[in-house]
């Protein structure tokens, strides 16, 4: 994973897809995220790591405003995607979420057929003019998610009938079908066995050529395997952010070092 020359990586990650400035998140009276500043590069994988309850998932959910669905949650500060403030009152979260897809911890296929699962996003957004186009979107999404060979003969079967790993790839395919620019992944492998995990990680690595991917993970090995940049969160604070190999080999902060070396977490 680290075999790309430094300069090449630096060059490719130079511009900014998502920029967060002084982001604060409150759950009722709890101050869950404090003063987070981060720039996320396009078409790369950024991993958020940190001990449980450090706020990494909460911050991830700010990026497509999923926190809006929680009544007591309040977000302050500024988050821009392509220079556009996503918390601007003019921005409809529906529009934002079509651009910023999300994959969850537990695979959550709808209780519908595999085909309808994938076709759901394109249908509600009106992305296909006719059945042929929709078929095309479904098959290409399944292909991109590496699920086509396993699923092509059972498109009419319920998505819940697939195995755990297949379900998670179905959910990724479902997110891809809407043609987003960013895909957020909230511990996408925590409910999967090692073989399924390996497949999903492989998929993430392929997807980064076309999408900006932000992944929250518990596993430092996973972060090291799939990400180019890594951000370490602790107690709601972004402690350190940088190239993945730097974070893992030469952390600047004592807390990062302690976490990486397994002293806590």
């Amino acid at each position: 994973m680290f075999d790309t020359p430094h300069s090449a990586i630096d060059e490719r990650l130079s511009d900014t897809k998502i920029a967060a400035k002084k982001v604060q998140v409150f759950y009722g009276d709890t101050h869950a995220i404090k003063d987070v500043d981060i720039n996320i590069q396009p078409r790369s994988v950024t991993a958020f790591i940190g001990p449980s309850g450090c706020g990494k998932s909460t911050f991830l959910r700010c990026l497509n405003r999923m926190n809006d669905t929680i009544d007591i949650c309040r977000v302050e500060g500024e988050i821009t995607i392509d220079g556009e403030d996503i918390y601007d009152p003019k921005v409809d979260p529906v529009q934002l979420r079509a651009k910023v897809g999300m994959v969850f911890q537990k695979p959550n296929p709808f209780p519908k057929s595999i085909y309808d699962n994938i076709a759901y996003g394109p249908r509600i957004h009106g992305l296909a003019k006719n059945k042929a186009e929709l078929d095309e979107i479904v098959s290409s999404s399944l292909q991109k998610a590496g699920l086509w060979n396993e699923a092509k003969d059972r498109l009419d079967e319920p998505g819940t009938g697939l195995s755990g790993g297949q379900q998670q790839r179905l959910c990724i395919a479902r997110a891809i079908a809407v043609n987003p620019e960013v895909i957020l992944m909230d511990e996408p492998c925590s409910a999967l066995d090692p073989i399924a995990t390996a497949k999903v990680e492989e998929l993430i690595d392929e997807l980064r050529t076309n999408y900006t991917i932000v992944i929250v993970t518990h596993s430092m090995q996973q972060a090291a395997r799939v990400s180019q940049r890594t951000a370490f969160f602790h107690l709601g604070i972004l402690v350190e952010e940088g190239l993945t190999q730097d974070i893992f080999t030469n952390p600047q902060d004592k807390r990062t070092q302690d976490y990486i070396t397994g002293r806590f977490g």
Binding site: R43, Q95, A98, K99, I124, H125, G126, E181, N210
Partner: peptide, 26 residues
């Protein structure tokens, strides 16, 4: 970088465009 940036914009426009058009109806 620039060409891929352009192609990416071109790739993604349809979604943003479609969502914007249908949003008020939805």
């Amino acid at each position: 970088d620039i060409t891929s940036e352009d192609s990416r914009k071109a790739l993604c426009n349809p979604t943003t465009e479609a969502v914007r058009n249908s949003l008020s109806r939805r």
